[in-house]
Design a protein around this nucleic acid. Structure first.
Ligand code: ZN
Ligand code: ZN
Ligand code: ZN
Ligand code: ZN
Lengths: 147, 147
DNA sequence: CAGGGAGTGATACACTGTAACAAAGCCGCC
DNA sequence: GGCGGCTTTGTTACAGTGTATCACTCCCTG
């Protein structure tokens, strides 16, 4: 459970896992497809309690700092980290254009290949994003069954 | 020269390489660091002739369709294509966080590695973006000289 | 209680991108 | 040349995304 991981991580680092941060993380984890910041703000707001987007952004920054949430640059959306991997580790985001779902995987092959390419180009990497848009297995099977 | 390539490409496809499209392409090619759409609009505007951002977006869409311009998702910026490569071909963008310059390269290693990873994940790709942020060789050398 | 730091609320604003419709230019056809 | 249809551009308005700033609360410490 990502909430448990969040609690542990915050305890380790001596930072606060506040109610708002928890709620934002829950919203990111529960929303399908991956929500934008404004979607989260709307989801957390009710009559009598408005959560402003700016508060959501702050919570998201916090969660991204801890590696609990990733930002999908090509969608302006946020996904919960599925892997508990180290910060800065290269991940591949698989964005299904049919169901809108976003999966996350790692790729040693890409990592080593990219390392060679960067070395060849004389470029020192700090971090990178790799986002692939296409069709996930489930949607492809569905289409095949229907077609 | 990218303008020559643009003219040929438009002639081949029977589409118009209008004055505005040419100016937008020139602006993208001449601006350093890579400009946003609003930067381009401002650059092309003068007293007596205002180029609205929406016109720039349309020209950029056109140029991207032809593969003459790329959009950098992590920066909301646009760069001229440096390679005349096929549309959909995987490229790697090298974004220098010091000088802001964005270089473009291809990587067969990444391509094949990514292919394996996607197959393993059962994901059918349509297109992908790979953007690496770090320090370019020139800036690293400069820092070394100064440090 | 005074002081300080972290977190949140609230407002305003800047930046990025799109929708809708009108006006202008181009082009083939009569 | 004039007409009709298409593409391109202008104009306005708007939606969506993200940040700056300041005030307020809460909690901890001395
Ligand atoms: Zn992750
Ligand atoms: Zn899918
Ligand atoms: Zn290119
Ligand atoms: Zn540089």
């Amino acid at each position: 459970m990502i909430l448990t991981r969040a609690e542990e991580l915050c305890r380790e680092r001596g930072v606060q896992f506040t109610a708002l941060r928890r709620e934002v993380l829950e919203a990111v984890a529960a929303s399908e497809p991956p929500p934008g910041a404004y979607d989260i703000a709307e989801r957390l707001s009710r009559p009598g309690r408005r959560v402003a987007p700016v508060s959501v952004y702050r919570a998201l920054d916090f969660l991204m700092e801890l590696g609990l949430v990733h930002r999908i640059a090509s969608r302006n959306a946020f996904v919960p980290c599925a892997h508990a991997h180290g910060i800065g580790e290269n991940v591949v985001f698989l964005i299904c254009r049919t169901c809108g779902g976003i999966d996350e995987t790692t790729s040693p092959e890409v990592e080593s290949g990219l390392g060679k390419t960067l070395k060849r180009a004389g470029f020192t990497p700090a971090h990178s994003i790799l986002e692939v848009e296409g069709d996930c297995g489930a949607c492809r099977d569905k289409a095949r069954g229907a077609g």
